[in-house]
Simulated assay, not measured.
Amino acid sequence: MTAQTSTQAQVISKFGEQKKAFSIDKHKQLIVTAKSMSDLNQAKRYLYGYFILYFNPHGVFMWQSEIKNLEHIPDKNISKLIHPITKVFYTQSEQGLPQKVEFNINKWFMIEYSTVCVATCDPQKSLIFKLDG
């Protein structure tokens, strides 16, 4: 397992465990106050506590903690919740000149992050259990 895979597993394991509703302001604050690329991991973890990419139905599922259910958000509407905030950092290069590094949380979530899930049940339907006996 690579470091990237390990980090992805840590991020995804928190999906659906949040007890409070998603806060656009809190997420924005985590991005704006980041001092380095590694500081953005906190914003990524917060994001993945509430959102996950799905293949079928295509789009994003959002964890609604207040009703303990998932809501399907079409791709075209996700930027209303995951704002396309770009954070710019400058790092020292080997040539001694500062190198500009840009990070956009929406682009990272929708394009660069490669984990996509498939729903195995419909969270909108009641659960049916079969009892033996």
Rank of each mutant, 00 (worst) to 15 (best):
M1L: 13
A3T: 08
Q4E: 13
Q4P: 14
Q4S: 15
T7G: 09
Q8I: 15
Q8D: 12
A9M: 15
I12P: 08
I12V: 08
I12E: 05
S13H: 04
S13Y: 12
F15P: 02
G16I: 03
E17N: 10
Q18G: 04
F22W: 05
F22E: 01
D25W: 08
D25P: 10
K26S: 08
H27C: 10
K28Q: 14
Q29K: 14
V32Y: 05
V32D: 09
T33K: 06
A34M: 05
K35M: 11
S36T: 04
L40Q: 08
Q42G: 05
K44D: 04
R45I: 14
R45N: 12
L47Y: 06
Y48I: 06
Y48C: 10
G49E: 03
Y50F: 05
Y50V: 06
N56T: 09
V60D: 02
V60C: 09
F61D: 08
M62D: 07
M62H: 02
Q64H: 11
Q64M: 15
S65T: 00
S65A: 00
E66W: 06
I67T: 09
K68S: 13
L70Y: 13
E71M: 02
E71G: 05
P74L: 00
K76R: 03
N77H: 09
I78T: 08
K80T: 02
I82E: 00
H83K: 15
P84M: 01
K87D: 00
F89K: 04
F89C: 06
F89S: 14
F89Q: 07
Y90V: 11
Q92F: 09
Q92I: 13
S93I: 00
E94Y: 07
G96D: 03
L97R: 10
L97S: 14
V101F: 05
E102P: 09
F103T: 03
I105M: 11
I105L: 10
N106L: 08
N106V: 01
K107R: 10
K107F: 13
F109A: 02
M110K: 01
M110V: 01
T115A: 15
T115K: 15
V116F: 01
V116M: 14
C121A: 15
Q124S: 11
K125Y: 10
L127D: 07
I128A: 03
I128C: 11
K130E: 06
L131V: 14
L131G: 09
G133M: 12
